[in-house]
Simulated assay, not measured.
Amino acid sequence: MSQRVSAARVAAAIDALTSSTTLGGLAQALCERAAEVTNIDEAVLVERSGGVDRQICRHPTNQSASPMSTGVTTSAEALLSSRQLTDLVTTVEISTTGPDVRLLIPGSLDPEQHDVVLLLADVASIVIDRLRAETDLAGQSARMQSLTDRMHALQQTLSGPLESSPDSNTSGFALAAGLLTDRERDILETLLSGASNAEIAVEYTLSIETVKTHVKHILRKMGASNRAELIARSG
């Protein structure tokens, strides 16, 4: 494994990881890209629980997806389905706030390849934590919307507005806005002024795709299905 690592492949791998929008998509991208940049074309991502390595994904995907028992030899057997069995398996830890996740690659890597795989693992760990945080925020947003709906329903049954919330729609909107990141709040303010994605991209020096992603996150966190509904809720 003495082939030089392609800088273009590394850049493409990082882009694929950072653009992942689901944990499953990220896991598959990590397996595929790690195998590609190391020129091995084989990798497995596993999660250890109760002393057993549970396979999350593998590349190529046409191999067995059954759970793997703990132990290097068994892991190597699972990895090297189309190769001569060897006890050399490179293991890279994926540091996250959740369960123990490891990337397994058959054979040994040269220093350059190892550094690149470590870089991809670090990028993946950041994206994993980001996606988990977004999932938590989505749950918080849904609960916040439920609370807003309950406040509105209660207000309808009373003779006057709730003392703690003169305008439940506006109050709920403000509470939901508190879940946004600083950049998302900036974009929300510009979006509410009627700016298009292209205008927002120019305003904040972002790509159109990045703006679309921010807008999608804003709509989800604010509990709105589209811009018109979001603007209407802003009061």
Rank of each mutant, 00 (worst) to 15 (best):
R4Q: 11
V5H: 06
S6P: 05
V10Y: 09
A11T: 00
I14S: 13
D15V: 10
A16P: 01
A16R: 12
L17H: 06
L26G: 13
A27I: 13
A29R: 03
A29S: 08
A29C: 02
A29E: 01
L30H: 02
C31L: 09
C31D: 01
E32Q: 06
A35Q: 01
E42L: 15
A43N: 00
V44A: 15
E47R: 12
R48D: 11
G50P: 01
G51A: 04
T61I: 15
N62T: 13
T70R: 13
T73V: 11
T73I: 10
S75A: 13
A76L: 08
L80H: 10
Q84D: 05
L85E: 10
T86W: 12
D87C: 03
D87T: 08
V89A: 07
T96R: 05
T97K: 10
P99M: 02
V101K: 06
P106T: 13
G107K: 00
G107A: 11
E112M: 13
H114A: 15
A121N: 10
A121I: 09
A124D: 04
I126L: 14
D129C: 08
D129A: 10
R130E: 12
L131Y: 09
T135I: 04
G139F: 00
S141L: 01
R143E: 06
S146C: 02
T148S: 09
H152A: 13
A153N: 07
L154H: 14
Q156E: 10
Q156H: 10
D167Y: 01
G172F: 08
A174C: 07
L175H: 05
L175C: 09
A177F: 01
L179D: 07
L179P: 04
L180V: 04
T181I: 00
D182L: 10
R183A: 11
R185Q: 12
L188M: 03
L188Y: 05
L188W: 05
E189D: 14
L191N: 02
G194Q: 08
S196N: 05
N197W: 06
E199H: 11
I200A: 01
I200R: 05
E203Q: 14
Y204E: 08
T205F: 01
L206H: 03
T210I: 00
K212P: 13
H214E: 13
I218M: 03
I218P: 02
S225T: 15
S225R: 03
N226W: 03
A228H: 04
E229R: 02
I231H: 02
I231G: 00
S234G: 02
G235V: 15
